[in-house]
Amino acid sequence: MSDKQAFVRTAVASSPNPDDMPLTSAMETRSLNVFYGAFRAVKDVDLTVYDNQITALIGSSGCGKSTLLRSFNRMNDLVAGARVDGEVLYHDRNIYGPGVDPVEVRRRIGMVFQKPNPFPKSIYDNVAWGAKVNGYKGSLDDLVEEALGQAALWDEVKDKLHQSGYSLSGGQQQRLCIARTIAVKPEIILMDEPTSALDPVATLRIEELIQDLKTRYTIVIVTHNMQQAARASDFTAFLNMDEDRAGRVVEFGKTGDIFTRPEHEETENYITGRFG
C-alpha cells in the first residue's frame, strides 16, 4: 500500500441484526505512549476499538483518558510539546506514519468535546461549514437536514436554521456539535465527556442519541460517570495511573464483564467506588 493511499473502509457490515455481527476492528493501538515534554501521560496502551460498537474509557481524573482519546485523531498535534510514540492503526495504517495527513485523519475520525462549542454562526452554517471546507459535492441543504436528523435535533431547529447556534440550550448545542461532526461523514466519532456540562435530562437524550448513532458509526466515549459507561457502552477500558502518574489500561473487555466480574482488584475498587 502506498503511503499516499487514502483510508478506505475495508469491510461493509450488512447483517440485519448488529448483535450477531462478527466484530471487526476499527482501530488498534500498539504500545502507544503519549508525552507532554518529558512527562509520560499515557503508557504502553494496546487497545482495540470495534466497528459499530461503543467503547467507553473510564478512570479517575488525570489518568490520561482524554489524552488517549485525542491521540486517536491526532488532536494532540495541536498541543505544544505533545509527542506520540507507538502506533495507532486505522484500516491497517498507522495514522502517525509518514505521509499521513492529519487533516484527512480528522475528517474520518471526528470529535465531540466536553463543553458544547458551536461556532458563533447560524445553526445551518455550523453544520454545513465542515462539509464545505472538505469540498463536499452535493446539496448542502440535504446534508444539513440529514445530519441534524441523525443528531435528533432537526425537529427542534428546522424553523430557525438561520439563528445563531448560541441561541440553543446546552443539550441542543451539544447535539448540534454532534450533527456538525456527522456532516463530514466520519467513520469513528470520539466523544470527550460529552455530557459532563449537561443536566440529567439532556444527558439522557445524548445517551439515547449515541445508541442510535452506533448503527452507522463507531464511537469512543470518555466518561467520568460509571453508570453512563455501564448502561451506554459495549466495551469498557479502565485506565489508572501508575507510580509515575502515567496512565495505562488496567483492564479492557465487554462492558458487562468489566462491571460484573472484573479481573483486577484495581478495577473492582474503582467501579465499586472504593477509590478514585
Binding site: 475528517r107 471526528g110 468535546f113 462549542n117 458551536p118 472538505n134
Partner: peptide
C-alpha cells in the same frame, strides 16, 4: 478567541 473554536474547526478536518 476561545481555543475551543480552533479545536472544533480542526476536528472537522479543516486545515
Amino acid at each position: 478567541v476561545p481555543q475551543s473554536l480552533r479545536s472544533a474547526g480542526m476536528a472537522l478536518g479543516a486545515t
